[in-house]
Design a protein around this nucleic acid. Structure first.
Lengths: 124, 124, 124, 124
DNA sequence: GTGGTCTAGACCACG
DNA sequence: GTGGTCTAGACCACA
C-alpha cells in the first residue's frame, strides 16, 4: 500500500507522510476513517514505531489527520487542512509549470494533464 | 544575483543548484553562456568552493549544464536536459494539482494560475 | 450545555473540568447550585462515569466545588476557591502579557482587550 | 538556568520549550544569539538529546528559533514568530482575565500588573 | 490497546 | 561538531 525507498534522500517519516496524504487525496482513505495504528503500520512497513508516529504528528499539524489518544488516528475533514498547505502547493505548482514550459512542454499538454488529474475523489 | 538563505532548512548546495536552474529557466542565463567559475562564485557568495562544486555537479547530472575540463561550465541546450527531470516534474505537477483540487481549489483558479505562470521566458 | 471535542488533544476529563469551571465563572452555575450527578452527566455526554468523577474531583481540589456524600456536588462560594489557583492564574497572566508585549502587541490593545473581557459576570 | 519539574504533568520537552521561550521573551537570549547545542543542553539538564531536539523543533515551528544543520540553533527575529502564537496567547489572556475577575481580583490590580509586566525587554 | 513521551545509542549530511 | 534521522525498547495516560 505504501512505497518506501531507502535510497531516497527524503527521510522515511516524510515518505510515509506523503504516502498517506496521497491516499487521502485519492479517496482511498476517507474522511473519518481510522488510519492503521502506529504499531501496526510500523510492523507492516518493517520500520520503527517512532518513525510512523512522527509522520502522524506531521500530518496532524497539516490538518490532514487528528489523533485521539488511546483510540487511534483518523482522517480529518478536508476543510480543516491548514491553509498554509494550499499556499505551499500553489508556489510549488508555479515553479513546476515554469520549468516544464521552459523544457518545451506545450501549454496544451499541461492543460490536458490538468483535465486528467481530477479523477479519484468524489467531492462530497 | 543568487539569493542564499542560511536559515532555510535546505542545504546551501541545493539552494545554489535551484537558484542557478531558475536563472536558466527565466532566461537570465542563456544557452551556451559560461557560468561563473567555481572559485569565483564561491568567493562572491562567501561560501566553500566544495559547496558550489556540488551544485554544479548536480546540475550537470540533470543536463542543465555541461563542463569542459579546464574551460568551465556552460548552460546546455534545453533539449539536452535529462528526460527524467521532465518526468519527475510532470509527476510532481500531477500530485500537486490533485491535492489542490482535493482541497477545494477550483479548476478555473488553477487555469488562471497556469496563464500567469507562463511569463518570464521568451524563447522559440 | 457542555461542549466536548473528541478531536481535541486535551483529555476528556479536562475538557469537562474546564467546561464546568467556565460555566461557574460565567455565572451560569451559581453559588450553592447542585451540579448534575456523576451518572446523569455521564449519561448525557455519553461518556464513562469515571471520567466525570475525575473532573469533579479536580474541581473540588481547586475549591470550585464541594461534595456532600450521598447528596451530590455543589458550586462553592467563590471565596473558597483555592488561593493557589489565583496565584497560578496570575503567573499565567504575567507570562502571557510579557510575551504579547514582546511580540509587538501594544499596551493599548491589551487594555482594550481587558475592558472587553470583563463582561459576562454580574456579581458584587 | 532552566527549571525542570518531573512531577509536572507537562512533558519535559514542553517545559524546555516554554523555558527557552521565556528566556527569549525576557531578553536573556537575544536575537541572533546561538542557543546551546542539543547535546550540550541535554547534558546540562541531564536528559536525553532527543527530548531537547523536540523542544527545538517546536520552537522552530513557532518561529522563535531557526536551526542551521551543522551550525546550531539561533534566536529568530521576533517579527517572524508565527501569528497563530499571538492569537493563542490572546485567547489564553481572555480566559485568564475572566476567571481572575470572577475570583475577586479588582480591575485596578490587573491594570497594575500590566504596567509591571513590561520590564525586561528593550524593544530594539 | 492506543497514542504520547522518554531513554540510550547509532549513523548521516552538512560545511 | 552540529542538527537531523532512525532504531529498539520502555513506561504512562486515557477511556
Amino acid at each position: 500500500m505504501l512505497h518506501l525507498d531507502y535510497r531516497d534522500s527524503r527521510p522515511i517519516y516524510e515518505q510515509v507522510q506523503d504516502g498517506l496524504r496521497k491516499l487521502m487525496v485519492a479517496g482511498v482513505l476517507q474522511e473519518g476513517e481510522k488510519l492503521p495504528s502506529v504499531r501496526a503500520l510500523a510492523g507492516q512497513l518493517a520500520i520503527n514505531p517512532n518513525t510512523i508516529q512522527r509522520a502522524y504528528e506531521a500530518l496532524e499539524r497539516e490538518g490532514y489527520v487528528y489523533s485521539i489518544g488511546g483510540k487511534g488516528s483518523f482522517v480529518a475533514p478536508r476543510k480543516e487542512v491548514d491553509t498554509g498547505r494550499r499556499d505551499e502547493l500553489m508556489k510549488q505548482l508555479d515553479t513546476c509549470v515554469k520549468e516544464l514550459l521552459f523544457l518545451g512542454v506545450s501549454k496544451e499538454e499541461l492543460l490536458r494533464h490538468l483535465e486528467t488529474a481530477e479523477g479519484g475523489n468524489d467531492h462530497a
